[in-house]
Design a protein around this nucleic acid. Structure first.
Lengths: 193, 193
DNA sequence: AGCTATGTGGACGCTGTGTCCACTTCACTA
DNA sequence: TAGTGAAGTGGACACAGCGTCCACATAGCT
């Protein structure tokens, strides 16, 4: 029962939306997104091309929708979960926990977004805004100067392409990546101005 | 007189290569790369499609070639220039200087690469390897643990998409970006293990 | 049951890609 | 300076994927 453009979505439309997402997930799992055509998705979902385009103007937006589903759960934990991920712990520790959680998320779902031209649009997704707001708040809590500029620096290493590169080309393990990211938390420790 | 595949490049081929690069530079300057077709470039260069494809299999490789030209000069200064960019200064200062220089480079030329699907292939360019080797050497000189993992973290904020996002969407100034990047240099300062 | 806004699907035209190959030009040799 | 083969050229071609469009179907209200 989700809403579309402020008005209730028709039942058949909702059913199709679900089928599309399901089909896309299956296809993206078996081969890189850039090799999956809109037509493939439409066929697999048992839906016409026009129906597909009605909601998702391109592959990237489907990938993003899929990713959003998984991201939402982490967002919930950041807001209301246990420390150090949720509220209560010192900012530096919360950032470390956030990094660890994001790496897990990337490990599972980065492939969804890897081949797509999300490069630029990535920053426009709701999820990115959420991560930025979260980390920015941590910076503010830590009293760090110019949080707006620093946030981007702290978020950049979480770009899916960067993660994919580290894992695939360089053969780094998730743990080593987390370790490296965690070192950034010194910037939020008291007395590092 | 450059060489191609180990064998001397024929004079007409060299001339065409230059014309292609020149035409591409002009076109990329007037509109985003993804709106420039291979055909546009071939036409403007006064060259057939086949000739174009002979050396540059896609738009991205042209953009990269163009970018390489500008990057080479900075590479030279890193190797043999005056401190703090060149050898002689403490690693943290050299990293700060490197960041400032890269921001200047991005400011001038990021547009070349912004619309292209260089996202993934970016890591495979010679230039990226160079930056990585440079920063890695600085990390080693500073005695930082696991330099291989940390390098990627330090380089990630220099991704053209990230830079474009900061400048365009967020309206940050180059100076503010440099400032934020410079804070990362604490990781190379003595006694931050 | 009738009505209308909403949703559907596939045929269609188009744009850009990359390949292919007959032809041209170069640079070397005698 | 003419001959020769290798290297380079260019545009015609076939094709794939995109996004649109619109006649038709269906849901959900009255």
């Amino acid at each position: 029962m989700s809403t579309y453009n402020g008005r209730m979505e028709r039942a058949d439309a909702a059913r199709n939306r679900a089928r599309i997402l399901e089909a896309a997930a299956a296809l993206f799992a078996e081969r890189p997104p850039q090799d999956v055509t809109m037509d493939d998705i439409a066929k697999k979902a048992g839906v016409g091309r026009g129906t597909l385009y009605r909601r998702y103007p391109d592959r990237a937006s489907i990938a993003v929708a899929l990713l959003d589903e998984h991201e939402r759960e982490l967002q919930e934990r950041l807001l209301r979960g246990e420390p150090p991920l949720g509220p209560g712990a010192p900012p530096a520790d919360r950032l470390a926990a956030f990094y660890a959680a994001m790496v897990r998320l990337l490990e599972d779902h980065a492939h969804l977004v890897l081949g797509t031209e999300v490069g630029r649009s990535r920053f426009e997704t709701g999820a990115y805004g959420f991560w930025r707001a979260h980390v920015r708040a941590l910076l503010v809590a830590a009293g760090t100067p110019d949080p707006d500029a620093l946030v981007e620096v702290l978020l950049a290493p979480l770009a899916p392409e960067v993660y994919g590169h580290q894992r695939t080309r360089l053969g780094l393990t998730p743990d080593r990546i987390i370790e490296a990211l965690t070192r950034l938390t010194v910037l939020l420790r008291p007395g590092s101005s």
